[in-house]
């Protein structure tokens, strides 16, 4: 692969990752997922930087990516602490729980009642007819499903 197509391909990958992260941060309401999306955006930027670094034969891009890693680590540490505090305050990881900045005359945004998830009861693996059906531990079942 020649230099320019490699650059363009790498930039495309970076752009796609960036846009995916952007969409994630704009839509997902779980604070943790929002942070994951932010990291995804950083990944997209990192890829672009490294691609340019290679294209120009310059170390700057790569050095910058190292700093991005550092900042991402810091950001994650601080942000997760905030998330924990927010969770302690509201009991939820919902970004939409915080609406205090809205215009005082506006009503609070409340979700529609969600339909219940009509998934089938889980089908557990069955043993061959030989022997006795083991008794499933109720607690363990609850914990395992849908982590």
């Amino acid at each position: 692969m020649t230099s320019l197509p490699l650059l363009q391909n790498a930039l495309s990958v970076g752009a796609i990752l960036f846009v995916l992260g952007l969409v994630g941060i704009l839509t997902r309401r779980n604070l943790i997922v929002m942070f994951l999306s932010a990291e995804l955006m950083l990944q997209g930027v990192s890829v672009s930087l490294v691609a340019w670094s290679r294209f120009h034969g310059d170390w700057g891009g790569q050095v910058l990516v190292i700093f991005i890693l550092t900042v991402a680590a810091c950001e994650a540490a601080i942000a997760l602490v905030f998330v924990l505090q927010a969770f302690a305050r509201t009991g939820r990881l919902d970004a939409a729980a915080w609406q205090s900045l809205r215009e005082s005359s506006l009503a609070r945004v409340v979700d529609q009642q969600l339909p219940s998830i009509d998934t089938l009861p889980p089908v557990w693996p069955t043993l061959s007819p030989a022997g006795v059906l083991p008794q499933a531990d109720e607690n363990e079942t609850l914990q395992r499903e849908h982590v």
Binding site: N30, A96, Q112, L114, H146
Partner: peptide
């Protein structure tokens, strides 16, 4: 953090998106 904070099962805010 997820282990610490995530309620068991799917929360309502995980099932809907904003815009």
């Amino acid at each position: 953090v997820l282990m610490l904070a995530q309620p068991s099962g799917l929360a309502s805010y995980d099932r809907v998106s904003s815009e």
